[in-house]
Nucleic acid binder design. Structure first.
Lengths: 222, 222
DNA sequence: TCTATGTATTGACTTAAGTCAAAGGTTTCT
DNA sequence: AGAAACCTTTGACTTAAGTCAATACATAGA
């Protein structure tokens, strides 16, 4: 993201931004706190979520290293942010121990953006990616949980290191996965079991082995 | 959006972009067509939607005058778009007669973007707004249909001309509203009826009169 | 104004997914 | 290793929302 900045600019960022380490379960910000800037995940993982009135948690995004989060408000609420009248639009929590984050303060970033086209483009590309992701997510939410689960598993398999062996190491807890799939722990558990009973997958804690991709693909279609 | 362009630049846009008029129900693009650029709504209305394998329609956005759509791919798939290997990520259809759209071809726009910072910022702001919108949408999708409906009605009331009189003129069909709320026509119909039976609203075709905002607000909370 | 077409409603039925409560597994820390 | 804390699974029950099919209501066109 900052690959095209000169030394001066990098110095400016470093001197004004802080790197902090969080433990699993530690809150990064609440949706009641004033917005002070966005974050870059250096190590670990973060979930972005909201809590509905009935107490249910809804995960909107998982963010892993080299990606940013909470950057969208920068462009929509310029004035309010300057006046420190704006709060974060959701909550965020570290989901791994030793999650290292860099905070980029909004005032610093506004200056930078003025002068650097590349950053602007990178931001645009990042936002577009999230937008596409949410588009897909919305579409799938009106299908059954097993469809959503199958899609998730196939996505993970594609981005997995152990792709060839057909193994997925879940980076997130089952609870977070349920909240991300728009359901509850029990339902997720039952869906996983159903897949296991049909010899499509084998679940062992956070390790999921895919036995039958084609059935999984058929499930994902709906 | 183009307010800061000089004459030269505006000429370039006009000479290379086309304005077209569509009738209600007319398709603007399918998700199988090569991507050639994004659109600005000058008049009328447009829905962006996907069709799932079981034939159900899922509305992702409604777009009304002065707003753009199909702009996100520009930043994420630069190379593929240049090589004309990229298709639109969803379908779009006019939802009113006399819907006038301006098509901005991607190659023209890339040149423009290089030279003009303001456009870049406007794009960022537009994408951010959509992102926020989808975030909220996702959150509400895991609540009941009546909650989503109540939220929609309150939103519409706020942006309505006849706000004071407590009247909403639906700009979209009930079918589209159902698809947007992630449900089907019958369920929407029943939810509206329930609200009417409880003297919260009066529905008369596309005109909805709000009688009891506070009950509606309580419903919207979940 | 009347008809035709598309749009919206209703009823009877089925099913997926949520709730609550209890038991079973995993981690982690001393 | 053992206990505590946390995370996950299971069972019995309830409910919201989907399907199918028939009917009623609007709106635009002749």
């Amino acid at each position: 993201m900052f690959s095209e900045l000169d030394e001066n600019e990098m110095d400016k960022i470093y001197s004004h931004s802080s790197i902090k380490t969080y433990d699993k379960g530690e809150m990064i910000f609440f949706d009641t706190e004033p917005y002070i800037g966005f974050y870059i995940v250096i190590e670990g993982g973060v979930k972005i979520f909201k809590i509905s009135k009935d107490g249910r948690e809804h995960v909107i995004h998982f963010i892993f290293p080299t990606n940013t989060f909470a950057e969208a408000p920068l462009f929509e609420h310029y004035d309010k942010i300057r006046r420190e009248e704006f709060t974060y639009p959701a909550n965020s929590m570290a989901i791994e121990n030793n999650t290292r984050l860099m905070l980029i303060r909004s005032d610093i970033f506004y200056n930078l953006l003025e002068k650097n086209k590349t950053i602007c483009f990178k931001m645009l590309s990042g936002l577009s990616k999230k937008l596409r992701h949410l588009n897909n997510h919305i579409e799938s939410l009106s299908q059954g949980v097993s469809v959503r689960l199958a899609k998730y598993l196939l996505d993970e398999l594609n981005s997995s290191d152990e792709k060839n062996k057909g193994i997925i190491e879940l980076k997130i807890s089952k609870h977070d996965l349920a909240a991300y799939l728009g359901t509850i722990d029990e339902t997720l558990s039952r869906c996983l079991k159903k897949l296991q009973d049909n010899n499509v997958i084998i679940v062992k804690a956070k390790r999921i082995q895919i036995l039958d991709i084609s059935t999984l693909q058929k499930t994902a279609i709906g």
